[in-house]
Design a protein around this nucleic acid. Structure first.
Lengths: 105, 105
DNA sequence: CATAATCATAAATCATGACTTATGATAAGC
DNA sequence: GCTTATCATAAGTCATGATTTATGATTATG
């Protein structure tokens, strides 16, 4: 199984998940996000940094603002990673069931 | 979007993810897991508790041992939750793209 | 019955990371 | 040019949670 679960870690924090969801709703600037969230602007910036490094969002400078969008590439990668993990887990479970059936014969 | 992301949080810790993967590979006792992992037995038990509360694994007592298996129910629920989240995110992204196309006309 | 093996919980320690308060850098508006 | 708005980074604080040691409970074994 593969290593890259940065996205998982990124989305495990409740505030950061909120940030992600707000951006998923529609692209927003840092100030925009800060206005809605119960944390300071630097806190928001730091969460955005984590999300960006996990390739879940990307920044697009617009004047003095920085508009954050979803990053479809990273999103796709995480999706693929999750699918793989799920496949492995379910395959293993299936093998286990078959195995116990085998034994019962 | 729904609340329940306990599974996400549970799998965000590297040691706990390793525990999950080992169990996915095949059902194991606590001692079995402890032998492989670089942490103490109580640490393993506590990780198992988190995974169990997230309904990713379940325990099956066998003599003095406790064999941990994957929990297909909880696994299915988390899968559904992730699919929903992904659907929402990708739908939102699609709307955004359509929107910018619209504007460009 | 006594000892050994397995496991879970409690309490304490320790590391990580979430958050805050500065602060500086860049861009827009007057 | 000066002020205002937006943002990121640095440094420090604080909370959370991952881990350890100690211990008791349960079950198998001799």
């Amino acid at each position: 199984m593969i290593y890259d679960y940065a996205g998982m870690v990124a989305l495990a924090d409740p505030t950061r998940r909120k940030v992600f969801e707000l951006i998923a709703d529609r692209p927003r600037s840092v100030i925009d996000l800060t206005r809605v969230l119960p944390v300071s602007q630097p806190a928001v910036s730091q969460h955005l940094k984590v999300l960006k490094e996990a390739r879940l969002v990307r920044a697009e400078p617009k004047g003095a603002s920085n508009i954050y969008h979803l990053d479809p590439h990273g999103l796709g990668e995480m999706r693929a990673w999750l699918d793989r993990m799920w496949g492995d887990a379910l395959d293993a479970f299936k093998r286990e069931v078959d195995n116990s059936k085998e034994k019962r014969k």
